[in-house]
Design a protein around this nucleic acid. Structure first.
Lengths: 133, 133
DNA sequence: TCTTACGTTTGGACTTCGTCCAAATATCAA
DNA sequence: TTGATATTTGGACGAAGTCCAAACGTAAGA
């Protein structure tokens, strides 16, 4: 898998590379999960016990603002973060709550030109159902 | 506009028509807004001052469970309820936070048959941007 | 009508998620 | 090294929502 260098990613987005930010980036840019903020906090704290909750929230919000991460609001129970590498769609497994990324080209949205009157900056398809085993 | 009879809608969904539930249904089934739970509470309390917050939450959750309402998790700041009359897409105005319903047929999702391995029960397109004036 | 059983409502305590702030610390550039 | 600026801290705070036991309403049968 492509594993981005946290220090380099931060630099590319104009973010000062403090030790705490690097620790958060290391986890959050590489994970395949869609962790909640508190999940990030707990995970980073394993290798960095002194980090405070406020710092993790600050850092995640900064990353979203700078475009490293995307904030997803799909799930009834949690807000979740997603490395914003390339755009994609989402499938939510209603049985397990798991969120699956669906490659951008797998489905298409047609007739977007009918959205006159709206300035569509971004869009995605959100699907719900169950994953076949 | 088609304004459903709350008593009848409750009956169709097997929900006992208590006075409080009727008051909640009256507002929530007719509104064009996408109110949060607390918004519903405040509005219903105008005509029904004694209703408690727990009752409104109970009632909304019951309505969702019984299929009268859909719970939307689109917005960073709130969970919101939507009368589930017919399926539709959503456009979120990033400037104002307003949520607009987009008729189902206005855009189409193509190539859904590529979703082998997933049992897609429902889907929608979520768009973000700004509304042209 | 009265009783009984069950469904509904209440309000206040509690939890969880997230923000805010002023003080303490770290970092960068000169 | 020093000063200016950015970052981090932790605890208080606020908002959103759940839980629970007690109180209340209501429909159906005796």
């Amino acid at each position: 898998m492509h594993r981005p260098n946290p220090r380099q990613v931060l630099a590319e987005h104009g973010i000062r590379p403090s030790a705490h930010r690097l620790a958060v980036a290391e986890y959050v840019l590489a994970t395949k999960e869609h962790p909640s903020a508190d999940r990030v906090w707990k995970t980073v704290a394993e290798s960095f016990p002194a980090i405070s909750r406020a710092t993790v929230y600050n850092t995640l919000n900064l990353f979203v603002e700078k475009g490293l991460l995307r904030e997803l609001h799909l799930d009834p129970d949690s807000v979740v973060f997603d490395p914003k590498l390339e755009t994609h769609h989402h499938f939510i497994d209603e049985a397990t709550g798991a969120i699956h990324d669906i490659p951008w080209d797998r489905v298409q949205v047609c007739n977007l030109e009918s959205m006159r009157g709206f300035n569509v900056r971004e869009y995605q398809v959100v699907m719900r159902g169950t994953k076949r085993h």
